[in-house]
Nucleic acid binder design. Structure first.
Lengths: 201, 201
DNA sequence: ATTTGTTCATACCGACTGGTATGTATATAT
DNA sequence: ATATATACATACCAGTCGGTATGAACAAAT
């Protein structure tokens, strides 16, 4: 509750954005309350509407500036350039299991949540979300293609189909994990996905 | 718009319930509007609150009386009693592809949608949804166990893990399908899932 | 020191929400 | 025929929502 002696617009914007991310993560976009967001970071409506034109744009900024960045760093960046994607993929699965927080078990994957909620009812949300999942699929696909060339991936593997399936299964694992309080379901899914990926070599 | 000459309470309740299902399916539970539900079937608030105590209970009835029943009929009933689950599972996948509607591509799986939205923020929703997915997993698991006994399933297969993975992948496939207007993603996922299931024998 | 644009805070608006209170028409039991 | 329970319809409520108008505090430029 410290007083703000001075302006710090970038910090203010960042705080509101992060609070919006959390709020949307927990309640979904439509049920997210601007009031709660602002209360959580002690800012006013004036501050919010100075930095963002409306609720929808705030939501899109959460997707483009936070979710996109986080998903890329964790799930895509490691696959860039490798021509041996199987161990890299399995590392990602394992790392996700190891770093899985209670929050993630309970609230799932932000990308998945927003996709389920918004993709079908708002075109701009749909497009922003599609960019991320397309990029994700494409990243896996390219790594599989490089893997084929260097002999690390079987020649009859359908790179596109497999990539789609991997992404769907990960998101599905997050989703199903919500019906448990334990990470067990998620771990089981990652394990089976591991088997599946191993079968590609 | 025919006039209601007489009372038909069961029909009224059923109409409201079906309209509620559609509304929740499209907009999610929290964003579902009772006004829109009632307008779509030309009933009044009095009728609604006569048959259901409140919005939440209406939502729970949609889960227990509609989603549960539909999911069971399509995904679980065929697996009951079989000791050769692989072709049955593949039949289910194929049938889902064949009967996939534009609605389902756009709006996904009602069970998945509600799970993503409500499981983490409301305990009663969580429990009703968990019952369905648990039953689903259990049904697959039992069929795999019978399959093992009769030699149709490999002996080193983890029935529980595989069942969890199948359910997660199907739900994930529905979810990812939302980012496309075509059934392509969904079909690809079912195809890969087919490969995975085939590897269990 | 003054001006000007930025960054917020406050007060407020109209629309809409789920839910309720009350009244009325219909069916059923006696 | 009378009494009573059921099945709705209508009007309305308090609260919340996203969004806006206004002005003050502040920073930067002149």
């Amino acid at each position: 509750m410290e007083s703000k002696e001075t302006y710090n617009p970038e910090e203010t914007r960042s705080q509101i954005l992060q609070a919006a991310f959390k709020e949307i993560y927990v309640y979904g976009f439509q049920a997210a309350s601007l009031k709660r967001i602002l209360e959580n970071v002690n800012h006013s409506k004036g501050a919010l509407y100075h930095h963002f034109p409306n609720k929808k744009e705030l939501g899109l900024c959460v997707i483009n500036e936070m979710i996109d960045v986080n998903m890329y760093a964790f799930f895509m960046a490691p696959l860039k350039e490798t021509d041996n994607p199987i161990p890299v993929l399995c590392d990602i699965f394992q790392k996700k299991i190891d770093t899985l927080t209670i929050q993630e078990i309970k609230y799932g994957c932000p990308l998945n949540n927003l996709t389920q909620e918004m993709a079908s009812i708002d075109k701009e949300f749909y497009e922003s979300l599609k960019i991320i999942s397309d990029k994700w699929i494409f990243t896996i696909e390219q790594s599989l293609k490089r893997g084929k060339k260097s002999g690390n991936i079987r020649n009859d593997v359908d790179e596109n189909g497999v990539s789609i399936f991997i992404v769907a299964s990960i998101e599905g694992a997050f989703g199903l994990g919500k019906t448990t309080e334990s990470p067990k379901f998620f771990e089981q899914c990652m394990l089976q996905l591991n088997f599946f990926v191993q079968s590609l070599k």
